[in-house]
């Protein structure tokens, strides 16, 4: 464990708490893409189900349980408790265009052609693109609540911090995980535009608004 990864994971944790806080305080899931949240459930369940047969560490176990449970809980909040506050008419990204190609990529690029390893690859590829419905929705509405942008910033920072972690591990341990690295770079790049607007508006105390 190095500090980049630790802060990356903490940033991921923070993003979940920010999202829960946003839903609870505004009593609404307005501005949050259900499709993105559903993809995260698929990502975490497919990747972290290995807690059932693989023991890495207490840290690893607790985090995995947390991410599976919290993503499911958020989906429950959106689908049941705050259902009327979710507007499917602006959450229109075609998720099937992501899942198909990701499944194909997972079948081609994996470390072993077994069910669980292909599933792991799929979760990595899917995670890198899971934010797209959310960013698409943001693009459509052209603005976002400040708390929602903090959620996205924390989520984006998580994978961005994994990049120096991989560089560090390459030099200190001599290992490289090309599948995770490639997908991680793509995932981080997708946030570039968001981060630009975030730093030039929200951090300066202005409202997050995309140019028309």
């Amino acid at each position: 464990m190095n500090l980049f990864r630790l802060f990356g994971d903490l940033s991921h944790l923070a993003s979940i708490f920010i999202l829960l806080h946003k839903i609870r305080t505004t009593r609404s899931c307005r501005g949050i893409s259900f499709k993105t949240q559903a993809l995260y459930v698929a990502v975490f369940v497919s990747r972290y189900l290995d807690i059932l047969w693989e023991w890495v560490s207490l840290y690893n176990f607790v985090m995995k349980v947390f991410f599976i449970a919290s993503s499911c809980f958020i989906l429950y909040l959106m689908k049941m408790k705050y259902r009327p506050t979710h507007d499917p008419s602006i959450d229109t990204f075609r998720v099937e265009f992501l899942v198909g190609p990701c499944a194909l990529l997972a079948l081609i690029f994996n470390y072993k052609f077994t069910f669980t390893e292909v599933l792991w690859s799929l979760s990595i590829f899917l995670e890198s693109l899971a934010i797209l419905p959310q960013l698409f929705m943001l693009q459509r509405t052209g603005e976002a609540e400040t708390i929602t942008t903090h959620y996205l910033a924390a989520l984006g920072a998580y994978r961005a911090l994994y990049i120096p972690n991989w560089i560090y591990r390459y030099f200190s341990e001599g290992v490289v995980d090309p599948i995770a690295v490639t997908a991680g770079l793509v995932q981080t790049a997708l946030y570039a535009d968001f981060f630009y607007v975030y730093f030039t508006t929200v951090i300066q105390g202005q409202k997050f608004e995309l140019p028309a």
Binding site: M1, Y111, W120, E173
Partner: peptide, 10 residues
């Protein structure tokens, strides 16, 4: 370096 999946990463 070796190409492998980092099992300890989240």
């Amino acid at each position: 370096g070796d190409a492998a999946r980092a099992k300890d990463e989240l």
